[in-house]
Design a binder for these strands. Structure first.
Length: 476
RNA sequence: UCCUCAGUAGCUCAGCUGGUUAGAGCACAUGACUGUUAAUCAUGGGGUCCCUGGUUCGAGCCCAGGCUGAGGAGCCA
């Protein structure tokens, strides 16, 4: 008999129909009520077994986590708590689950504990909800760009370029690490290596995306990215997924419009397609908040928060305005900032938090940063000291998007490479696009996991990626 | 990498000023009950108190070093 997914039984219940359910046991109560989940939805289905018709040796094996197949008839529930249930006629245990070894119970586990059980944490309601939302967001990313005529570009994961400048890189080599060949200067001799030169895992697909944008017009990347920084925070991963659109003929203002429309589209998509999971995560967050001091609690429930972002225009200010707001704030006057504020500083987390969470209380896009604190490829403004960079900050997460209008002028870019100590021979291919039919273009990078955090309300980035890669953590 | 906090049963946690046999709830086992919703009730088993060293008559508790985790900072997405 063909299996019916639980979501179909619950949503299109045909009373009296015989169905085959396959899934994993959540609970078995009173020797007759078997609650099963199969991942098709957050919701479970209740199977009612007749204790007298179900052999005891089967009933004794129905622990949380056991996989089962049940054939039964759909009926309106006699009990409260569910509309329909299935009267079990035959039960088969597909896979036993020894409760003395299986660590997941029908109780609250700490997220820290479940991180150590990353192979099993999908079985919990929280993680199944998070990863369903993650799926819908990933789908929304592709849909947003596809609907707007962008091409999905696959940029390399292994890169020979070391000029991306976005952080420490993981080395890729086939050299025998116990016998590393050295040249006459005592340096590693990469001429004997797989690529004949040093290679790394990519930290960004942006430079390659620019090359494609200058022919295909509108492209985006969406793939894994690697940073070997020793970052130990709740919002950094060594391996994360990044989305990088790049558009020819767009300037920084078009870029901001795109970023805002993009985030709104994705969040709206999950509101429309995963509301059940979002509502569960919202209740979870509210439960968690009860244990927290008042000032750390969310003031607006998750779903409302997302709707607010979708419906209201983002704030847009320049870096210079941001500095003015900070310096005129009572917070600054009462010397509550740990780091001083003056024009030219890189904004600290506490400054960004103040702007986003206290002052504006909504997503903020900041543009026009000092050239000295931003990357070499960002377009120099007419004032000669700021660049056409933009950061989007959101409450609770901080920076979620970083982007810029790119420097399209060959001589200016060449000069910036010199200032940033980037050898021309490392990046000749990038510079050539500025020689052959250069044009205004812009793009941004968005950390996918940070968007998943924002959409789910999860506060640790390790809980929104199936198998987090962080310093000292690559078990699964 | 830096700062702060934590590590006690499978899980969540209590354990006083250093003092005899280290506790609770959940989970598990046995029994009762049988339309339950994290079912309930009774009984029971279950411990490398993170590791190493030290102080002390005596250390889960104090000290030193280490390991692991969390929060914050830096780096950034």
């Amino acid at each position: 008999m063909k299996r019916t997914e639980i979501i179909h039984i619950l949503d299109q219940a045909e009373i009296g129909k015989e169905v085959n359910i396959k899934g994993w046991v959540k609970t078995f109560r009173n020797d007759q009520f078997l609650t099963i989940n199969d991942g098709s939805t957050l919701r479970n289905i209740q199977v009612v077994l007749n204790p007298e018709q179900t052999p005891e040796d089967l009933r004794k094996r129905l622990y949380t986590g056991t996989s089962v197949s049940v054939i039964g008839v759909v009926q309106e529930s006699l009990g409260k708590g569910q509309n329909v249930e299935v009267i079990g006629q035959s039960l088969t245990i597909l896979g036993d689950c020894d409760p003395n070894e299986f660590p997941i119970q029908m109780k609250k586990h700490s997220l820290e504990f479940l991180r150590e059980k990353a192979h099993l944490r999908f079985r919990t309601s929280t993680f199944s909800a998070v990863f369903r939302v993650r799926h819908h967001l990933a789908f929304a990313v592709n849909k947003f760009f596809n609907d707007r005529g962008f091409y999905y570009l696959h940029t390399p994961i292994i890169t020979g370029s070391d000029a991306e400048g976005a952080g420490e890189m993981f080395k890729v080599t086939t050299l025998d690490l116990n016998q590393i060949p050295k040249d006459e200067n005592g340096h590693v001799d990469h001429s004997q290596d797989f690529f004949g030169k040093s290679a790394n895992l990519t930290v960004s697909g942006q430079l390659e995306a620019e090359l494609a944008a200058l022919a295909l017009g509108k492209v985006y990347t969406f793939g894994p990215t690697f940073r070997a920084e020793n970052s130990n925070t709740s919002r950094h991963l060594a391996e994360f997924w990044m989305i990088e659109p790049e558009v020819a003929f767009n300037d920084i203002y078009d870029n901001m419009d795109l970023a805002e429309a993009f985030l709104k589209f994705c969040l709206n998509h999950v509101l429309e397609n995963a509301l059940e999971d979002l509502t569960f995560l919202q209740e979870r967050e509210q439960q968690e908040d009860k244990a927290k001091p008042q000032e750390e609690r969310q003031t607006i429930p998750l779903v409302e928060r997302l709707k607010f972002v979708v419906d209201s225009p983002f704030e847009r200010i320049t870096y210079t305005e941001a500095i003015d707001i900070l310096m005129n704030s009572n917070h600054y006057k009462k010397k509550k900032f740990k780091y001083d504020v003056s024009w030219g500083i890189d904004l600290q987390s506490e400054h960004e938090r103040y702007l986003v969470e206290k002052h504006f209380q909504k997503p903020v896009i900041i543009t026009g940063y000092p050239a000295a604190i931003k990357a070499f490829y960002m377009r120099l403004n007419e004032d000669g000291k700021t660049v056409a960079a933009m950061d989007m900050l959101v409450p609770g997460i901080g920076e979620i998007i970083g982007g810029s209008q790119r420097e399209e002028r060959y001589d200016v870019l060449l000069e910036k490479c010199k200032q940033f100590n980037i050898p021309e021979e490392h990046i000749w291919w990038y510079l050539e696009t500025r020689k052959f039919g250069t044009c205004t273009h812009a793009g941004f990078g968005l950390g996918f996991e940070r968007m998943v955090m924002y959409a789910t309300g999860m506060s640790n980035i390790r809980d929104v990626i199936p198998f987090p890669r962080t310093p000292l953590n690559a078990e699964f």
